[in-house]
Design a protein around this nucleic acid. Structure first.
Length: 373
RNA sequence: GCGAUUGUAGUUCAGUGGCAGAACGUGCGACUGUGGCUCGCAUAACGGGAGUUCGAUUCUCCCCAUUCGCC
């Protein structure tokens, strides 16, 4: 299911192949978010053009508007959105972070308010597995209880315990739902490891989760206020516990610097709404660092967003054009900005892989980090 | 020409005899496992002149401009 093909000599970086029922993706890779079955602004054909290998949609959000029910009739999201790469689904535990829909939770599951019709929804680990099976993604996530960064250590410890409990229930129910399905046609399941920035909590969560033998392991709960050092100290710790031959997914992380730091520690999969959201709000990745395209200084600038970028936006459009469309809230401006940011990140990781094969990855990662300071 | 009306940020409008407000715009920033024509901060104004008053953007007069009506 996961094989490592190259290993960096100086860092823990590695290249691998993740084999799913819909095909193979080469790790490490970055997944744009496709929460409702679409990456805002981009068609599946454009994702293919950019060579995006995988996207991640959201089981809970899809369920709220009957998406999972509709998708089931299509035999899965692959047919529904016509994206022929790998489809991940997020369980929706992260939506405990959303004050708009989250109500409360207990040991059995999570109460959400469906904003569409005001209905109360109780999501249990079992229910969540069923929704993700309906969506028929290639890789599903176990349901976790999302701890808030600002919560007390006691609260985070409780959320971590609850997550471990739910993770077990997810695994058992998921196995049951797939009984009789040949292994190569099964949906994979990743277990989410929580624990905040506390080493002993993360350690315990990681140890308990790996006992259940998941197809991969997800590190959740970052990008919410902790420092980069706090974050990667924990990533390093979790990586020491997870067996080397299992893929590791650092959930929600998507800045160029953090992705490269993750790769250096042996993380294989990333996702984030940051590149798409930032694009819509006018912050673009470039080979020289972040560029705020809406700044007045680009008003008459005929040059492309990034001279070194080969994406179709940079080959065909000027900064002035992109700025003008973005400050006027033109959907096409947002689309082009999104295209560029996703292309940039995807390409960055492709370059990182070449550098790993060359044995020059460490230096490459340092250079990029310098530019994003 | 006569009568009336209104002049406050770039725009549309509040308001006050004693520090002048909003919205939108503009500028800058933020955004990390949903999302927003999102969020945060900043910017900037009393048409001109005279008078009354301790003090006028506010009251009075004149001028200029606006809008409406009438000839």
């Amino acid at each position: 299911m996961f094989t490592i093909t190259y290993k960096d000599k100086k860092t823990k970086a590695r290249i691998g192949k993740l084999k799913t029922k819909s095909g193979i993706a080469e790790t490490p890779f970055f997944m744009p978010v496709a929460t409702r079955g679409v990456t805002k602004g981009l068609t599946s054909e454009e994702l293919k053009q950019i060579k995006v290998q995988a996207v991640i949609s959201n089981a809970l959000i899809l369920y709220l508007r009957n998406g999972s029910e509709i998708i089931k009739k299509f035999n899965g999201i692959r047919n529904f959105m016509n994206f022929k790469g790998i489809n991940f689904t997020d369980c929706g535990g992260f939506q405990m972070y959303s004050k708009q829909i989250y109500l409360n939770s207990n040991d059995k599951g999570i109460n959400f308010r469906n904003p569409v019709n005001g209905e109360k929804l109780f999501i249990t680990p079992e229910k969540d597995m069923e929704i993700q099976m309906d969506i028929n993604s290639d890789v599903a996530m176990s349901l976790d209880s999302m701890p808030m960064y600002e919560h007390s250590k006691k609260d985070i410890a409780e959320a971590t315990e609850k997550t471990i409990m739910w993770t077990k229930r997810c695994k058992e129910h998921h196995d049951k739902l797939q009984e009789g399905i040949p292994k190569e046609k099964r949906q994979m399941l990743f277990g989410i490891i929580q624990g905040g920035i506390f080493e002993e909590l993360r350690k315990k969560a990681a140890e308990e989760t790996i006992k259940l033998d998941f197809d991969g392991y997800s590190i959740g709960g970052f990008g919410l206020g902790e420092t980069i050092d706090e974050e990667f100290k924990i990533v390093e710790l979790v990586k020491k516990i997870v067996p080397e031959e299992k893929p590791v997914y650092l959930m929600g992380i998507g800045t160029p610097v953090e992705i490269l730091k993750g790769i250096a520690l042996g993380v294989d999969v990333f996702d984030s709404r940051m590149p798409t959201q930032n694009a819509r709000h006018g912050t673009l990745f470039t080979s020289k660092g972040n560029l705020k395209i809406t700044n007045e200084k680009y008003k008459f600038d005929k040059s492309p967003v990034d001279e070194k970028c080969n994406c179709f936006v940079c080959r065909n459009y000027s900064k002035a054009f992109l700025r003008y469309q973005l400050i006027n809230d033109e959907p096409t401006g947002k689309k082009l900005a999104t295209y560029h940011n996703i292309y940039f990140l995807t390409k960055l990781i492709e370059e990182a892989k070449k550098e790993i094969k060359n044995g020059t990855f460490e230096r490459f990662a340092k250079d990029v980090e310098e530019k994003y300071k």
